[in-house]
């Protein structure tokens, strides 16, 4: 059966994705830093689904290793899902350059470095799919988290271009824009219940959207309309707002 490569596999969304894909009969490459921490998790998947799970060490910000990393994957994955992401508080990101840079490198530069390699191979073989987990935060820069948001804006634009490029080679690209998701990362935030998705629901949404070749997925779906409104507020008003 085909392998799916999940980049940034230690996040809550990634783990749920791993379970969903395994349940649907796919084998898995799970990649991330200190990936050995997922040893028990990979056992869990094997017991649940009987699928193969292979852990692969990968630092998304160590760009020079990416070519070698992908070259060594055998068999090549049918699908590549980029879930890796980094978010720190805006106040920290805007005062510490190292934090800004890490946000940019994890969310954008690293993803581009790796997906360039993946895309070239998939174009060549005319087979496969790519899923990039971006964010609604990339739809418009807000003072509350524009450093994170701008990296996601760049990533969304990249994915859109990639989808356009690979269309004629039958390689599909899905852009995922989650809104609030209840994860370890957000456990201490007061998130509005109606707007907050569970990681498992996000994973199921992604799987369905990928299988049916959707282009852009907002999850929960209501975020499509929330962001539609937010992006249409005139800038002369928007700049005065705190949202």
């Amino acid at each position: 059966m085909s392998y799916i490569l999940i980049i940034g596999a230690k996040s809550d969304i990634a783990k749920e994705l791993a379970r969903v894909y395994a349940k649907n009969g796919y084998d898995l490459y799970l990649a991330g830093r200190n990936i050995d921490e997922l040893q028990n998790f990979s056992e869990d998947i094997k017991i649940r689904s009987g699928r193969n799970v292979i852990l692969k060490e990968l630092d998304i910000t160590d760009f020079t290793t990416h070519l070698d990393f992908y070259a060594k994957l055998e068999p090549k994955p049918l699908g590549v899902i980029v879930v890796s992401g980094y978010m720190t508080e805006q106040s920290i990101a805007q005062t510490q350059w190292s934090e800004s840079l890490n946000t940019i490198n994890v969310n954008y530069t690293g993803a581009v470095s790796l997906l360039n390699i993946v895309a070239n191979e998939m174009q060549e073989s005319r087979n496969g799919f790519i899923v990039g987990v971006s964010s609604v935060a990339g739809d418009r820069g807000r003072k509350a988290n524009y450093i994170y948001g701008s990296t996601k804006a760049a990533f969304s634009a990249y994915l859109s271009g990639l989808r356009n490029r690979l269309y004629e080679y039958d390689v599909h690209v899905l852009t995922v824009k989650p809104g609030f998701v209840a994860t370890k990362m957000t456990a201490n935030l007061e998130l509005p219940e109606k707007l907050t998705a569970q990681a498992s629901d996000v994973a199921n949404d992604i799987f369905k959207a990928q299988q049916s070749k959707k282009n852009t997925l907002y999850t929960k779906w209501i975020w499509r309309y929330i962001m539609l409104i937010i992006t249409h507020i005139p800038e002369f008003l928007f700049k005065k707002m705190s949202i």
Partner: peptide, 9 residues
Amino acid sequence: KPYDYFLHF
């Protein structure tokens, strides 16, 4: 609920 791994069968 998040503590939810299958350990062995």
